[in-house]
Design a protein around this nucleic acid. Structure first.
Length: 263
DNA sequence: TCAAATGTTTGATC
DNA sequence: GGATCAAACATTTG
């Protein structure tokens, strides 16, 4: 589910609803997601006022007047405004007006209070949507391994996941197993352009709803209809009609066109 | 019925 | 320090 475009869509859908409101009460049902003492987390949150919501890569930072609420959607997390609590609700914040829920089936997500921002987490690279092309190209070509694995690495670049790495590599005509150092300057720049264009288009379409992704108001995205290769094994390439193949790169299912994408 | 796969990150190991 | 792999978990797919 949630890569940069989906997280951005969630942030846009809830920000105006929660900023300026205070947390009246908090309840939790998963120690995996909160990574800590529920009472202490509740004590830290209750009484705080929400001053803003920011995204960095796939991270969501809900800024409070004292501290920060860090939210990561993992694979199946949902941040829902005024949703109905259910079997997979892991956290529930009652605000002065309305309720903010964190649902997460597989509990790979996080919902944690931090007194200070960023300090407790592994540093992430520049945001994929705003990284300057020069910086992207320079850092990319220093990396070893395979281009797809590098794009997925959040320490290299924040925000790209499995769907958008495949779509960006397809758009740029680059084979997912290409060593980054082998890319010409021109091809690396082309990859940057393709990546940013695809991320922006996906945001316009409110993200990709592959299975059950929805934004903060419960609405599905539609960008999955525009995927050229992701999840399209056996279908014809939109450009050359060659059959789309699925391989495994960096332990991840990887979709590509064997004719359009060469090393 | 069961094995494999699923969008994520992390931590261990080489 | 990087790259690679397994693990965390529940549900769906073949």
């Amino acid at each position: 589910m949630p890569e940069l475009p989906e997280v951005e869509t969630v942030v846009r859908s809830i920000t105006a609803r929660i900023v300026g409101k205070s947390i009246v009460s908090a309840s939790f049902s998963s120690h995996r997601v909160t990574r800590g003492d529920h009472d202490a987390t509740g004590t830290a949150l209750v009484g705080s006022t929400i001053s803003g919501v920011e995204r960095r890569g796939k991270q969501i930072w809900i800024c409070l007047d004292r501290g920060f609420l860090y939210v990561h959607l993992g694979m199946t997390g949902k941040l829902l405004w005024n949703g109905e609590p259910g079997k997979y609700t892991r956290a529930c914040l009652q605000l002065t007006d309305g309720v903010l829920l964190f649902d997460d089936i597989r509990t790979f997500g996080r919902f944690e209070f931090f007194p200070e921002r960023d300090t407790a987490l592994a540093p992430v690279g520049p945001d994929a949507l705003t990284v300057p092309v020069g910086e992207f190209v320079r850092r990319l070509r220093e990396r070893r391994g395979r281009i797809k694995a590098v794009l997925l690495s959040q320490s290299f670049l924040a925000g790209v996941g499995n769907i958008y790495s495949d779509e960006a590599l397809y758009s740029a005509g680059i084979h997912p197993r290409t060593p980054p150092g082998r890319l010409s300057e021109a091809r690396a720049r082309r990859l940057h352009t393709a990546m940013v264009e695809i991320l922006e288009a996906a945001i316009t379409h409110k993200g990709s709803s592959i299975s059950d992704y929805v934004d903060g108001l419960g609405e599905r995205g539609s960008f999955q209809q525009l995927h050229a290769v992701y999840g399209r094994t056996g279908e014809p390439c939109p450009r050359c009609a060659t059959t789309i193949r699925r391989i495994v790169v960096g332990q991840r299912g990887t979709y590509y066109c064997p004719r359009c994408q060469r090393v």
